[in-house]
Each structure stands twice: as structure tokens, then as C-alpha cells.
């Protein structure tokens, strides 16, 4: 593989990692506040559908993005209602949300467009255009730096850059603001937060809603930037890979960037090579596809660095008995 080949793979990895990154940060907010969310997948799917549908009807991708976020937020509200207000099982709620999304997107999609659950292809202003960074054309000819800047960093949709920006933003919110401190505390010891006079319910709803917004970005990116329109089940397990990345990153923002990029890279490799010949051993593409999940299990098993989730994660908070 030559240098340009590597650049192409990395470029593809960056595109594929972006929805994972959004979803991973979404899960990070939710789980840091003590709400497990295995419904990331469903929220991505719902957002992908509604953003594509609205972008198609209005011809404006920004309205599509907004609709996608609204779709994701609605599912977040259900999750919040079930797991915060009614203190139900958060895992079961997540499972239900995934099914709800994969059912309702096809049912409504078929009713609106009659294309077997697809939306029509998006064109022009209904998609996020690729942005050329300043001077990208001017320095393309330079060795090494030229291709890295012009081909790898430049030429992505605005959501890719926003996703990258979300990483320091998340870090700043979580570790440098009062809200972030409380949010992390509510995931570790909600009783302490409650004693301090801060609303556990309010904080957890806030976290779940932030999670919804970020999943909305992930879905909209998938349908209106990465591809041109919605297809049935287009999230294709990305919500679960994001969950895996979140564990891989041990619930920390910068590591989330690393983990999602790694999983994006695996995806890019799998797309490019049907099988990979590594040191004389033929590695099937299915192994590459399964690798994120295998790595996550290994991490979870604690053989390579232990992943310890937020302590109050998954437990509904009961104020008094």
C-alpha cells in the first residue's frame, strides 16, 4: 500500500467514523449521567429517516437535520419517561426503542414514498455538500503535507468538522463546567447530588436529551452526507458499534475519538479489501467486521485494561422510601 492508498483509507475512515463519533458522544452523556442507552441504534435510524424525508420535501438539508434531531429527541423522551420518570428497566426500554425505530421508519416510509422503505435520492441542496478547506488546492502539490491537508482533512461535509469539534466541547462541558461535574456525579452517586439540592431527574433528562440531539446528528449525517437518502435499516449496527467504542474509550471523550476512528478504520479496510493478507495469513473480511465487537468483549473482560462503567449506571434513582 503506497502513501496515497493510506491517505484514501484514512479519508474513508474519517467519513465512516463520524456517525460513530456522534453516537459515541451521545452515549457518553447519557451513561455518564447513569442512564444506559442501548437505543442509540434506534435513534440514529429514526433521525436518518426523518432527516432524509424532510430534506427531500423541503430541498433544504438544514431543515432535514432539524427534523432528524426532533425524531431522535422524541425517542429520547420515551427513554427518559421510561427510565427516569417511571423507573423502568433502561435496557428493556432501549431494546423497545430500537424495534420501534426499525418498524416505524419502514411503515411511514412506505406510506409516504412507496419505495419499500427507502426515501427518494437526495440531490443538490438536500444533501450536505463537501467543504474545501482554504488553500487546499494551492498546497495539493506539496509532498506529504499536500495530500494530508487537501485529500484527508479537506473535502468533508460540515458535520465531519462539527463532529470533531464536539470532542473538545464534550470534554470541556464534562470536566470544566458545573453542569458537567453534576452530570458525572449523578452517574456515580445520585443521592449525593440530591442531597446537595440539585435535581437528579432534571440532570438525567438533560443528559438524555443531549444524547438525543447528538444521535440526531449521527443519523442526519448518515442519510444526508454519507449517502444520498434513507434506506431500510441503514444504521446497520452503528449504534452498537458506538456503544462498543464507548466502552473501549472507557467513557472518556478523547478516547472516544480514538476508538471511533479505529472502528471507522476497520470499516474502511473491510470495504476496500475483500480479504486481507497479513504476514502470510489470509484474514477474511468478516473477521474485520467482527473485530470491533471482539475487541469490546476483550476490553469488557478486563484482560486489557479494565473498563469500569459509571457506578449508578442503569439504576433508577428512588428519592425516598
Amino acid at each position: 500500500m503506497d502513501f496515497l492508498g493510506i491517505i484514501q483509507i484514512l479519508d474513508s475512515a474519517l467519513r465512516l467514523a463520524t456517525p460513530l463519533l456522534f453516537a459515541c458522544l451521545a452515549g457518553l452523556f447519557s451513561e455518564r449521567a447513569g442512564i444506559f442507552d442501548i437505543g442509540l441504534e434506534g435513534k440514529i435510524l429514526a433521525s436518518a429517516f426523518l432527516s432524509a424525508a424532510f430534506a427531500f420535501y423541503t430541498g433544504n438539508v438544514w431543515l432535514g437535520l432539524l427534523a432528524g434531531i426532533v425524531a431522535s429527541l422524541m425517542l429520547s423522551a420515551i427513554h427518559g419517561l421510561a427510565s427516569i420518570t417511571f423507573r423502568g428497566n433502561q435496557l428493556i426500554s432501549g431494546v423497545a426503542i430500537n424495534f420501534l425505530a426499525s418498524g416505524i421508519t419502514v411503515v411511514v416510509g412506505e406510506a409516504w414514498f412507496g419505495l419499500g422503505g427507502r426515501t427518494p435520492s437526495l440531490m443538490g441542496g438536500a444533501r450536505f455538500a463537501e467543504i474545501t478547506l482554504p488553500f487546499a488546492d494551492a498546497i495539493r502539490g506539496m509532498p506529504v503535507i499536500g495530500p494530508i491537508y487537501s485529500d484527508l482533512l479537506s473535502g468533508h461535509s460540515i458535520l465531519v468538522y462539527f463532529g470533531l469539534l464536539c470532542v473538545p466541547l464534550t470534554w470541556w462541558v464534562l470536566y470544566r463546567t458545573r453542569f458537567g461535574l453534576r452530570l458525572r456525579a449523578v452517574g456515580e452517586n445520585p443521592a449525593a447530588v440530591d442531597t446537595a439540592g440539585v435535581s437528579v431527574v432534571g440532570l438525567r433528562y438533560a443528559a438524555v436529551m443531549i444524547c438525543g440531539v447528538l444521535c440526531g446528528f449521527a443519523g442526519a449525517y448518515l442519510a444526508t452526507a454519507l449517502s444520498a437518502g434513507f434506506v431500510k435499516e441503514m444504521s446497520a449496527g452503528r449504534g452498537f458499534i458506538a456503544l462498543a467504542a464507548l466502552i473501549f474509550a472507557k467513557w472518556r471523550p478523547w478516547y472516544a475519538l480514538g476508538a471511533t476512528f479505529l472502528f471507522g478504520l476497520l470499516d474502511a479496510f473491510g470495504n476496500r479489501y475483500q480479504s486481507l493478507d497479513l504476514f502470510g495469513v489470509d484474514i477474511p473480511t468478516q473477521f474485520m467486521q467482527a473485530l470491533p465487537y471482539i475487541l469490546t468483549v476483550v476490553i469488557l473482560a478486563g484482560f486489557v485494561g479494565r473498563a469500569i462503567p459509571p457506578r449508578a449506571g442503569g439504576k433508577p434513582y428512588v428519592k425516598e422510601r
Binding site: A82, F86, G88, I92
Partner: peptide, 10 residues
Amino acid sequence: ALVILFTGAL
């Protein structure tokens, strides 16, 4: 999904 939601989570 709704059966799971109502019987399990809600």
C-alpha cells in the same frame, strides 16, 4: 416494540 415498552420499561 410497544409491547416490550409497555410490559418491560413502562
